[in-house]
Design a protein around this nucleic acid. Structure first.
Lengths: 367, 367
DNA sequence: CAAGGTTAGTTAACTCTATTAACAAACTTT
DNA sequence: AAAGTTTGTTAATAGAGTTAACTAACCTTG
């Protein structure tokens, strides 16, 4: 519904169709030109021409002949240029200080790098980041499709970090800085958004989903109608500083009182455990806080797929179960038959792999 | 971000460009072909050709010559065919039982009709509806672009009413029934969704917004990135049966306990008033319930535009102010400078005019 | 094993959409 | 009257897709 823009020329349509081919290969794996024609509805003639262009861009390669006995001319199989393209991802979200990786097009991590933690801020943080990226680039044995960065805070669609308190970046054009230093296209996104992109493409994805992430704060990513919600000022996902009740008065690191983060973040949970609160009881309390914020979202947006993730020793099956129950108590949607809440299978690398998804999206036009 | 589909052919692009012209005329009022060329970025040649097609479809008309002294050939002004096209809308949401209207392309109500209330259900409700529509059609003095219906309950994109308890419709193909009886294209949408479309197009619209509607129940519509959120099973907006706390145990009409609707719907408010609760106190209590559900949504989706509407003697400025304060207490987003919560200026006709927006969208491709 | 059928991919001719370049029409300014 | 502006059209061109017909390379069958 709704949504508009500017004029569409035939050449824009062609660019879309090129991406459609890449998307199809990404989703269904290697296939022939004829297969692509059947899958997309375009003719074999057009597919041949488009594929030629993609091979020319080295986004697609021929991988050999179709095996097996069949009548007719054997087909030439095509695939994304998986062996010949690399993506560099950087996770600034802070579970580990600065982490980078060389990945393939499927977000598989081929090699990892990390900076020594030194709590750098401002220019020092940038310098450390650039050094880390440079290290990764030097270790790379194939052309690099792009660089993806997952940063905490608010990031615009132009790669400007409006607010990342951790590094004291405010209105900093991180994208331009990295592109200038490396000469490689760079795409930046909020860390929770990276995480949900990763789950959407490589994990338990669907057209409508929410990802809830407990770390230093409480992060949240939302996809509706297969589209990442970024919000009117790119601040979507800022769940940590929601307050539920006037009676909630715990002091939050942001200076306000009663924020969700003061009750349900990993530091808050550690604190309660240290104070001797029993784990089962604590889980219920934390789940109630989280569900209070998320349940209305599920009902209002009709979302039936929730990914729950974060520091693994805190975000475990018992807490997930407590959250399921707390959501079911509050939202009709969470009681429906096709509702599911799952733990992320690979919480460690969610942000990094989400960076890869973001690069794929911008460079190849595929989800 | 993300989102994909099937192949785009040049003819699809052309259809988009035709809609782009209609959209521009709708937004900016009458203008010349040359103006359209400047506004869209297409050439004058192309615009002339596209406009010819639109005039042929009688979606656009020439309205005269440009006034005023200017050098150059005077331009011929174009506009949407506002005088020559009608939209029929039907509001089944139930403040008044069955209400229909003949509207122009701007959703201005030219003539109203209503059925006597008889609490009809099932086939009887359909019969009453068809009779009302027939009356409207017979009173219409210009070609009808389409019929729009705003229905309570869950409505799919194919016009099938999955669940509208009020009429005991379950999986009923209302769209097909009306189209078969009238021969006119018919588009059905949930009533709260109609309401937000109306505000989006004719009222206080923006790319990211929420509409909250108190009536028999509590309805909610959401637009993000200029797109109406319909949810994974078209059930988005079902806010009435969210529960906030385990301690909430008021019995709801749906059979469950603790639903928001049992505290903050118009019937619930009437009941509390009848029981002698003071209005100011009641406003605060209702606002707290509503804000508890809506505040997380504002923060998570970064929405800074809230429309508040419903039965006018309940949804008034004092309640709006109480809601503003309750939201500000709970959401950082609601405390931001560019946040605004407004009462709808024309709550009476929101659903009807939203039907017109929905017809415009499907028949002309404009928002 | 030659003939016939099937499937993949290409070549050639055509349609459709939008472009650029040039022009005619109708006005204002000098 | 001559020159300048702006609108809208005509004519020729470029690009993205289509259909129709072809070649290539395989399988099956009499």
């Amino acid at each position: 519904m709704l949504s508009h823009g500017s004029a569409i020329l035939p050449s824009h349509g062609r660019e879309h169709n090129l991406s459609l081919i890449l998307q199809t290969l990404s989703d269904q794996g290697e296939m022939s030109r004829a297969d692509l024609a059947r899958a997309t509805g375009l003719t074999r003639v057009t597919i041949s021409e488009l594929v030629a262009e993609l091979i020319n861009r080295s986004h697609v390669i021929e991988t050999g002949q179709q095996e097996g006995k069949r009548p007719g001319k054997p087909s030439t199989l095509l695939d994304l240029n998986r062996p010949g393209l690399r993506i560099i991802g950087v996770d600034l979200s802070g579970v580990v200080p600065f982490r980078a990786a060389i990945m393939d097009l499927d977000g598989a991590i081929l090699q990892s790098f990390s900076s020594p933690k030194r709590d750098a801020t401002r220019e020092a943080a940038v310098a450390q980041l650039l050094e880390l990226i440079d290290t990764a680039i030097r270790h790379c044995d194939a052309p690099i499709l792009g660089i993806g960065i997952g940063s905490p805070g608010v990031v615009t669609d132009k790669g400007i970090v409006i607010a990342a308190e951790k590094f004291v970046w405010r209105g900093f054009d991180l994208g331009a800085a990295v592109e200038q230093a490396t000469g490689i296209n760079t795409h930046i996104l909020n860390d929770a958004d990276c995480a949900i992109l990763s789950e959407h493409t490589f994990g338990q994805g669907s057209d409508h989903m929410v990802l809830l992430r407990l770390g230093r704060g409480v992060g949240c990513g939302v996809i509706t109608h297969n589209t990442l919600v970024r919000g009117s000022d790119f601040a979507a996902g800022e769940l940590g500083h929601v307050r539920q009740r006037a009676e909630d008065t715990a002091l939050c690191s942001c200076g306000e009182i009663g924020c969700l983060e003061a009750y349900a973040s990993v530091p808050a949970i550690w604190k309660s455990l240290a104070e001797g609160e029993e784990k089962g009881q604590l889980n219920q309390r934390v789940a109630a806080y989280l569900a209070g914020a998320v349940a209305p979202l599920l009902s209002i947006l009709d979302i039936r797929n929730v990914i729950f993730t974060g520091t693994p020793d805190i975000v475990d099956q018992p807490l997930a179960q407590a959250l399921r129950e707390a959501l079911a108590l509050r939202s009709h949607t969470a009681r429906s038959e096709n509702f599911r809440l799952s733990l992320s299978e690979d919480p460690e690398h969610l942000v990094l792999r989400g960076c890869a998804v973001n690069v794929r999206f911008h460079e190849l036009g595929i989800a």
